[in-house]
Design a protein around this nucleic acid. Sequence first.
DNA 1: TTGAGTGCAAACTTTTTGCAATGTT
DNA 2: AACATTGCAAAAAGTTTGCACTCAA
Lengths: 156, 156
Amino acid sequence: MYAKNDFQKAKAILDARIEEMGLRKTVERYKILEEIYSRDDHFEAEELYDDLKEKNFSVSKATVYNCLDLLVDLGLIIRHQFGNTHAARYERAFGRKQHSHLICVNCNRVLEFCDPRIQTIQNSIAEFYQTNIIEHSLILYGQCQKEGCKHHPENQ
Amino acid sequence: MYAKNDFQKAKAILDARIEEMGLRKTVERYKILEEIYSRDDHFEAEELYDDLKEKNFSVSKATVYNCLDLLVDLGLIIRHQFGNTHAARYERAFGRKQHSHLICVNCNRVLEFCDPRIQTIQNSIAEFYQTNIIEHSLILYGQCQKEGCKHHPENQ
DNA sequence: TTGAGTGCAAACTTTTTGCAATGTT
DNA sequence: AACATTGCAAAAAGTTTGCACTCAA
């Protein structure tokens, strides 16, 4: 299965980096990584916490947050700060092609899209300002036409 | 003065829309708008609150937040959610040309830049997905070379 | 054995809410 | 006078921290 290979890849990197950094291989870290790689969406820390609890693998929130930080640092997951919600959202880094986000301001649904021109822009700016650019985030806010999207009258 | 005209323009709109919506012309709303239009940066709600207090015009935080929401809705100010800080940041909408942001992950400084290609991308995506796109946000995260930028060793 | 990592609860930060007091219309 | 708006303080929401206990090395 596609996602399973991605998890194996991520796990191998986590393994290697944990050893390299002299950290400990705790059950929690691997369980959390596995849970994340079983998902295909943009989730909040709280959702991950609830999911694990529901699957009878309870971890404390502190551990969830600690682990998310570690996985972001290692590049195994990506953190987003969308403008329409308070909480940070995460997604796995492998097995999903690089993409940008189109957020529906009515129903909060996230649509992913790719456009190679963004990388071109990033390269131009990096060169112009002689700056080392680490990453970019392009978010479009719009109104999706999907069914079930509750259009607020004031947004029409 | 440049910024003063921008404030007058924003104030006129606020005036008109307040009447239109049957809201009340409170001193607070105009003071807050004026304070915002005297600034040229990306500030947090708390900073605005402190500024007003320092100028001997105290408003409650509730009022600051309420007013910021109103001004965003009316398009007189712009709200940003940058990924490196917790709090939302705001800037005035008039008198500043449309721009994107380059954030230094070391010192949190905000550099503004313009690139017309972003609008092109937005238009393509809007057409492709047959979606009404209201706004876009492109944020680049990098390491600036400005003096006083405290480079964290782990980021090098 | 040892100290990194965990769980828990308390603290903290940012934002929202409830309610009585105020002031615009 | 009516009620939208304010101030204040308390609550919420998301995240971080302190500390005692646990378990991987």
